Computed example of a mutant assay.
Amino acid sequence: MLNTELLDTVRYNCNVSDANYWGYFSLCSLLLRLRELFKIERSLEPWDSVKNEEIFPWIEKKENTWKELENASLTPVSLNGNSYSPFDIDGINNYLVNNGFVYGAGYALFMKPSFFIGTINRFEKIDGYNVYVVDKEILRDIFSSPGMSLGKTVYIRLTDIKYRLWENIHSWHRKKGHIYEFILSKFNHPSDWHYPFKEFYSIVDKYSKIVLYHEIAEQEENLPLWDEIIKECDNSKTEHIIRGIRDFIADFSEKGPVYRALVERDKELLYLYIASQGAYQKKILQPVLSQIEKACSTNDWKNIEQIRTLEFKKWKNNQEHILELFKLKGFEEVKNLTDKIFEVGLN
């Protein structure tokens, strides 16, 4: 059983974070996040429907809670007579993991504090990292991501992965292109699936590998000064660029998912990686993703390795240039430079 005081404290910190950061999201994004959170709190699956008469009062109650907690501060977590920072994942998990649960904490987009408690699907030691594959999430804030990492701890969040992929896959069958045809032919068309959706869960497992390799690579390539730049972004589009560059470096590094797909000659992994990129990533990486897709279709793995190596070096050079600019001239010059990525990209 979970400690009631622990649950109340984490729930409070989730609400405090949401109260102070909900305005950073667009209205559409906020409503989608609230809908997902509503379903998760009720242990519903992505394919389960909800009724307006049920969710609307819940949203109103949530908004009232946020109003009460505007400008409130996070509170320490008390366990067994000890007090822990909300970000002391090791201290809190020393208690939780023995009971089959895991606690996650970190800073998300906009430097939003993000927390969750979930059940442990499995635990693995991989390349010196403690990897928790998290199944059902008991508590979380409105922000979620398929993976989180802090230091030597990595979380693979199956709930978020399921929700993301369920929406993606049902849109992919309306798109044209070899990559979507390959994925749907490999895992079958969604219209042919039957509960418990064996084909869907096979995609979830495959995508979990992408998340795992990305998170480990991100920690391997982590630079403290890069985090300092992110902290100064203050909800500007610069943050998307800075985080994006870190993501690109991780993905194209020798610890990342592109290299892993290359080593394992795993077309499914590589195609799934390309198809699941967000709008921002596709905007910046479209030429490269197209080159990789074309090479993959002809099994030209040598060309893919050349593309990966060049792309990794490019983003590392961009990072070094930005770091030097930040040290010499400060954040405003970094902002001026990164704004250009939206127009012509960096070389």
Rank of each mutant, 00 (worst) to 15 (best):
Y273K: 03
R174L: 15
T238I: 12
I203L: 09
L69E: 10
I59V: 14
S290I: 07
G118K: 04
Y213L: 07
N299V: 01
G177E: 08
D192K: 15
S290P: 03
K313E: 08
Y155H: 15
P190W: 08
R164D: 13
E305M: 04
P113C: 02
I230K: 15
N82L: 15
K340M: 07
S171F: 12
E199C: 08
N303E: 08
E228F: 10
S236K: 13
V50A: 07
I55W: 04
K335W: 00
A108N: 14
R157Y: 06
K294L: 10
T153M: 10
N94W: 01
E137G: 06
W47K: 02
R140C: 08
T153C: 14
E293C: 03
G330T: 00
S78M: 03
Y195N: 08
I229M: 14
Y129L: 12
Y259T: 06
E320W: 07
W47C: 02
W58K: 05
P196C: 03
D88H: 12
F197Q: 11
Y155M: 09
Y24D: 12
I89K: 05
D234C: 11
E68L: 04
A250T: 04
P196K: 02
N235A: 13
E268S: 15
G106F: 04
G81T: 07
P46I: 08
E254Q: 11
F116T: 02
S171G: 03
L310Q: 10
K282H: 11
T338R: 00
S43I: 10
F342C: 06
E305N: 06
K186T: 15
P257C: 08
S208F: 11
I40T: 05
Y213V: 05
G104W: 00
R33W: 14
A217W: 03
S17T: 03
N20V: 07
Y132C: 00
L27W: 13
V211D: 02
N13T: 05
K61C: 09
D160F: 10
K314R: 12
Y103A: 01
K294P: 02
L262I: 12
H178I: 11
F200L: 05
S29K: 15
G330D: 00
C28G: 14
V263P: 05
E333T: 05
C233G: 09
M148I: 09
E199R: 05
N299C: 10
K39L: 06
N188V: 08
E215G: 06
N99C: 13
I341F: 08
P146F: 01
